[in-house]
Amino acid sequence: MSPINSLWFKWKSLRLPWRRSFLVGHDLVGNTYWEFKDTLNAGRFRRIVKPQPKIHYSDVEVSPQWHQWLRYVRPQPPSIKEQQDDILRRKRILVLAEIQRKRWETGQSQFDTPGTQQPGPATRTSDTALSAGTEAENGNRARNTDETSQGSSPQAKTQSWDGAPAAKEDPFFKPRDVPGEKFQPESWTPTSSKR
């Protein structure tokens, strides 16, 4: 900050009796925070933020510390050191999150069986179709290895007990005891409770 700006801030922050508004502080972006006497409630000060003149009101960003001060959650305004520490804390969190993301992508989940690894998150619709196809292939390979390890031949699985070829599983098969789409539950009628 330039010496002229610091002198202006000191002059505006003086609580002189004829002044209506007092400068309380500023943030690292350049927004200034003010207090002024409320005309309806003389014992309470109102708190506002004045953004830089070149910034549109929709683009104003208020830090959480200053937001707490504006909402009377904290009585004292945050210092410049506290605001700088908060920015460093945010940068550290981003670095740690990136490290954890890389660890998650390269590492294996503890819930996976040994030899399998979770697929990464799907970012495009084509990824979901590809991952579904590879999961089906992996499932078929796993079934084939299970069958060969048990000593049964693949032909025995495709034939029924009478020697006829087994029917393929129908994806639209619904058991008969399951209610259909038009099922409506009966209305409930309360009865007196037994004592």
Rank of each mutant, 00 (worst) to 15 (best):
R176Y: 11
I55G: 00
K194W: 13
W8Q: 13
S79R: 05
E82N: 00
Q155W: 12
R143M: 15
N31F: 01
V62H: 02
A136M: 14
L94C: 11
K102T: 14
P175E: 15
A167H: 14
D170M: 06
N138K: 15
P190Y: 01
V49H: 02
Q118D: 09
N31Q: 00
G25E: 03
H56Y: 11
V95R: 14
F36K: 09
N144G: 14
R46K: 15
K157H: 12
N140Q: 13
S160W: 09
L16G: 06
T113M: 11
L96T: 08
P17I: 05
V73H: 05
T32H: 03
E181H: 11
G107K: 02
V24C: 05
F22C: 05
S79K: 02
D170Y: 04
L94I: 05
W18H: 08
F9L: 04
T32D: 03
R92W: 15
K54H: 10
P78R: 03
T158F: 10
G120K: 10
S152C: 13
R20P: 00
H26D: 00
S63F: 07
Q84C: 07
I48H: 05
D38M: 03
W8F: 10
Y72L: 05
P51F: 01
T116M: 04
A166Q: 06
L40R: 13
L16K: 08
E169A: 14
R141A: 10
K10S: 10
A167V: 13
N41S: 10
H56F: 12
T125E: 11
S21G: 07
D177C: 10
K194Q: 10
G107T: 06
L88Y: 07
V62E: 01
S126W: 05
I93R: 13
G30A: 01
K91Q: 08
N138I: 04
I48S: 02
D177S: 10
V73C: 09
S160E: 12
K174D: 09
H56G: 04
R19W: 01
A42M: 08
G163I: 01
T106Y: 11
V73S: 09
R101L: 15
D38Q: 03
F36C: 12
K81Q: 12
P185H: 07
S109Q: 03
I55D: 03
T125S: 14
K10Q: 07
D162A: 04
T32G: 00
L28H: 00
A132F: 08
A166D: 06
F173M: 07
